Amino acid sequence: MNNAASPSENSPSIARPGELISVIRPAMATEFEVLMPADVDREAPEIALEALEWIRTLEGIFSVYRSDSDISKLNREAAERPVRVDPHLFKIVQQAVAISEATGGAFDITAGPLVDAWGFTNRSGRKPSDEELAAALQAVGYQNLELDADQQTIRFKQPGMRINLGAIGKGYALDQAVAMLVTSGVENFLIHGGQSSIVARGSRRPGEPGWPIALSHPIRPQRKLGRVWLQNESLSTSGSGKQFFHYRGQRLGHMIDPRTGWPGGDLLSLTLIAKVAAESDALATGLFVDGIQKATQFVETNQGLGIVGVAEVARSSEVEVVAVAIADERWEPFQESPRDQN
């Protein structure tokens, strides 16, 4: 299950003036798109298409919905023995474990059993029994992943474990595509996967400070809350604006804290800016679960990060928007929440 916000929920929106070239390919249950100024070299669209095709190749390695994928084989066999995996799968799991350690376990690619227990896998949220929750927690914990870099193998130390790359896979794929474009000499472009994971390089137009990204209201996506300029960095949004249910007067969303087994966070959405998309994807998930106070502390003590948090205002249809570690000239809040400012 992908913990990142889906395009229909609280994704940003991307300005598309008429002078842009668009290259689109479906992958990972969404659409990936490369946007480039119209004056790029004539080879650039073909390079973009090749980069998007590579994302489809990675999907064949990372998808838990394909029985013949590397990750499906790993999930079937790794509790019994170390499993040699594709180098890209090993690398992304290494990155995921590093981010789990950095966030104190708030991000965890083994959290799938908890999402199942709460009914969010099939979008029918429910409170699990204490027994169900305890059983799910037994199968969760990045500390129980044993990685052997020399042999490129992964083993699960606990039975019932499995990994799902939904909250980091798109970001990793975008980073791979960006590397292909940059290596081929493409300097100015924006690439996104379903708009919830975005990487911008260079500028949309000469003289502009990057690419403008409008951030949407988590519950009313037609409303825009503000605009951020993105340049040579990535942006990812996580949230539970649509997937939630109420239990004893408490709003419980689909973003589960892997450490407690309960839905976490005190925001409707969290948008995170980082240097690479795998990091922004995973940190957006982990820091959303941690809540705005810990998220603020994290970005203030780690250079190159910024966040925009959106919180409910009690007994009101309005929201509070908080930007942290983003320069004033890069972040413009919309006072009137216009529908289509870009």
Rank of each mutant, 00 (worst) to 15 (best):
G119Q: 05
A106T: 12
V97G: 02
A98N: 13
L114R: 03
T103A: 03
F90S: 04
D108R: 08
S100P: 01
V97Q: 13
A102Y: 10
T103R: 10
A98K: 14
G112V: 05
A117Y: 03
F120D: 00
V115G: 01
T110C: 05
Q94V: 13
G105F: 05
A111S: 12
D108T: 05
L114I: 06
A96W: 05
V115L: 05
A102G: 07
G112E: 13
G119D: 10
T103H: 11
A102K: 14
F120S: 03
Q95I: 09
K91L: 09
V93G: 00
V97L: 10
V115E: 07
G105L: 09
W118R: 03
T103N: 10
V97W: 06
G105N: 12
A117K: 01
A111Y: 07
A96Y: 02
D116F: 09
P113S: 09
A106Y: 10
V97T: 07
A98Q: 14
I92T: 02
L114F: 11
G105T: 04
V97H: 10
G105W: 08
W118Q: 06
A106Q: 04
S100I: 06
V93L: 15
T110F: 11
W118I: 04
A102C: 07
D116C: 06
P113C: 08
A111W: 02
P113H: 07
Q95K: 13
K91P: 00
F90N: 03
K91Q: 15
P113F: 08
I92H: 08
E101T: 13
D108V: 04
A106C: 12
I109W: 04
F90A: 06
D116A: 12
A111H: 06
G105H: 12
D108I: 08
F120N: 02
G119M: 08
D116H: 11
I109R: 01
G112Y: 14
I99M: 15
G119L: 07
D116P: 02
G104N: 09
G104F: 13
G119T: 04
A117Q: 08
A117H: 04
T110R: 07
I92A: 05
F90I: 03
T110L: 11
I109T: 00
A111T: 06
I109M: 12
S100F: 07
G112N: 09
E101A: 15
K91D: 15
T110H: 09
F90K: 05
Q94M: 09
G112L: 09
Q94H: 11
A106E: 02
L114D: 00
A96F: 06
G119W: 13
F90H: 15
T110P: 02
V115A: 08
K91Y: 11
G119Y: 07
V97Y: 10
I92E: 01
F90R: 02
K91H: 14
A111K: 09
V93C: 11
E101K: 15
A106P: 04
I109G: 00
A117L: 05
F120H: 06
E101I: 14
V115H: 13
T121L: 13
Q94A: 11
G112M: 10
S100V: 02
I92F: 12
F107A: 01
L114M: 09
A98C: 09
T121D: 13
G105V: 07
W118K: 03
P113W: 06
F90W: 12
A102S: 15
G104Q: 07
D108H: 10
G119H: 09
F90L: 14
F107C: 03
